[in-house]
Simulated scan of single mutants.
Amino acid sequence: MHLDYLRAAIADTPRVAVYGTLKQGFNNAHWLNGARRLGSDTTRALTLYDIGPYPGAKRQPSKGVSIEVYEVNIGHLAQLDRLEDYRINAPAQGEYDRQQIATRFGRAWVYLYNPGVASKRAICEGGWEMPYTDHD
């Protein structure tokens, strides 16, 4: 069933929009190895929240946050679902839900943060910056 669900998702929208640690140069970009980067875009459909080591997005209007859009396959989408704790049978129970947004490259899947963000800093314009980590 999971494979059929992924096939249907990719057939509907073979793109994913990323806004945080999956972007080029960030620590989780390797999860998109082999995916075709279509380019950058700005969306006013999302507001980002600084969760600490990563951001979370909510479907809330903004002045425009930066995203990267990739063409992905079933394998990429399955890996991203695991990384983002997206639960096919109970999307509201995982850390992220996967929904679609419009981009200049067409509709793309985006992972929306499920937990509350009342105490988190909102990023309504631009992008999230990975916090500096001292590895010494």
Rank of each mutant, 00 (worst) to 15 (best):
A57F: 10
Q99A: 09
E84L: 04
K23V: 04
Q60R: 13
A78P: 03
L80G: 00
A118I: 12
P53N: 08
F105C: 07
Q24N: 14
P115T: 11
Y54H: 03
L22N: 01
G20L: 03
Y96A: 07
V110W: 08
S66R: 09
L6T: 11
M1T: 12
D81M: 07
I74H: 02
N33S: 14
A17K: 03
H30K: 01
L32N: 01
R59N: 13
L112T: 13
S66N: 09
R44G: 06
Q93H: 08
P91W: 08
L77H: 10
Q100K: 11
T103H: 04
I123N: 00
D4A: 13
Y70S: 06
M1D: 13
T43M: 00
E95N: 10
G64K: 00
I88L: 08
K63C: 06
D4E: 06
R36V: 15
V16C: 10
T47P: 00
H135K: 02
I67F: 00
L3E: 15
R87P: 02
G75R: 09
Y96C: 05
L77M: 07
E68Y: 08
Y54N: 03
Y113C: 02
W109N: 01
Y5L: 08
G34W: 09
N114W: 04
A29L: 05
S119P: 01
S66W: 13
V18Y: 09
R44V: 08
Y96S: 01
A108M: 02
Y54S: 06
T47Y: 00
E71G: 09
K58L: 14
S40T: 15
Y96H: 06
V110P: 02
M1P: 07
Q100C: 11
K120M: 11
R107E: 14
A29M: 04
G34L: 01
A92G: 09
Y19K: 00
G127S: 12
D85P: 03
N27E: 15
Y70E: 04
G25M: 10
R104M: 09
G25F: 12
G94N: 00
G39H: 06
G39I: 13
G116P: 04
L22I: 09
R87K: 03
E95W: 05
D85A: 06
T42D: 09
G75C: 07
L77K: 02
A122F: 02
Q100D: 11
A122T: 11
Q93N: 04
P91Y: 14
N73D: 15
A29E: 15
W31Y: 15
Q24G: 13
L3G: 05
R7I: 12
Q93E: 13
G25P: 02
R7E: 15
F26L: 14
F105A: 05
